[in-house]
Computed example of a mutant assay.
Amino acid sequence: MDLLMIIKAIILGLVEGLTEFAPVSSTGHMIIVDDMWLKSEKFLTAHGANTFKVVIQLGSILAVVVTFKDRFIELLGLGRLNMHAVQKETRLKLTQVLVGLIPAGVLGVLFNDYIDDHLFSTSTVLIGLVIGAVFMILADLFGSKNPKTQTVDQISYGQALTIGLIQCFSLWPGFSRSGSTISGGVLMGMSHRAAADFTFIMAVPIMAGASLLSLLKNWEYMTMDALPIFIAGFISAFVFALLSIRFFLKLINKIKLLPFAIYRIVLAIVIYFVFL
Rank of each mutant, 00 (worst) to 15 (best):
L187P: 00
A203C: 10
L242F: 12
M202K: 14
Q154C: 12
F21R: 07
G105Q: 13
Q96S: 10
V274F: 11
A63D: 00
L227M: 06
I155C: 14
G77R: 11
G185V: 01
L242D: 05
S123C: 10
N253W: 08
P205F: 12
I235D: 07
S170K: 07
L12Y: 14
I201C: 10
H29Q: 12
M83W: 14
F135G: 02
A46F: 15
L14W: 06
L251D: 05
K69F: 13
E16P: 15
V130A: 11
T124D: 00
A194W: 06
L215D: 12
V86T: 01
G184K: 15
K69R: 15
Q159G: 13
M207V: 08
F238G: 00
I11V: 07
S144C: 08
P173M: 02
V134A: 10
N82D: 12
F273W: 13
L78W: 08
F260Y: 02
L12H: 08
G128D: 01
L251M: 10
K53V: 14
L75H: 10
V97K: 01
R91A: 01
Y272Q: 06
L161R: 09
G233F: 03
M30A: 02
H47A: 15
L138T: 13
D197S: 07
F238R: 00
A237P: 09
V130D: 11
L171H: 12
V86L: 03
F230V: 03
F72D: 02
K42E: 14
I32E: 00
F72L: 04
D140M: 07
M1H: 11
F234E: 04
M83I: 11
V15H: 11
L12V: 13
I137L: 01
L126F: 04
G189T: 05
A104E: 04
V97L: 03
Y157P: 12
G105I: 13
W219C: 02
G28Y: 00
Y272T: 05
A46V: 15
T223A: 02
A241F: 11
K88G: 02
M5D: 12
I102A: 09
V204H: 08
L4K: 12
A196W: 05
I201H: 04
I73L: 09
L251S: 13
F111Y: 10
F200H: 05
A46L: 11
V24S: 01
T199P: 12
S191T: 01
V130P: 10
R91P: 00
L3N: 13
G79D: 01
F200C: 02
W37N: 04
V54W: 03
F135C: 02
V99T: 14
L18T: 02
S26K: 01
H29P: 03
T149V: 14
A139M: 10
M1D: 06
F21D: 09
A139N: 05
T162S: 15
V204F: 10
Q96K: 15
L216M: 13
M224Y: 06
N112P: 14
I201R: 07
I115W: 09
L161Q: 11
I73S: 00
A22K: 07
G179D: 01
F21A: 10
R193C: 06
A195F: 15
F200V: 03
Q154Y: 13
L18Y: 04
G128S: 03
V66S: 07
G209H: 12
E74T: 06
P205H: 09
F198T: 06
Y221W: 09
E89S: 01
L3G: 15
I155Q: 15
I231M: 14
E220P: 07
Q150R: 07
R264P: 00
Q57A: 09
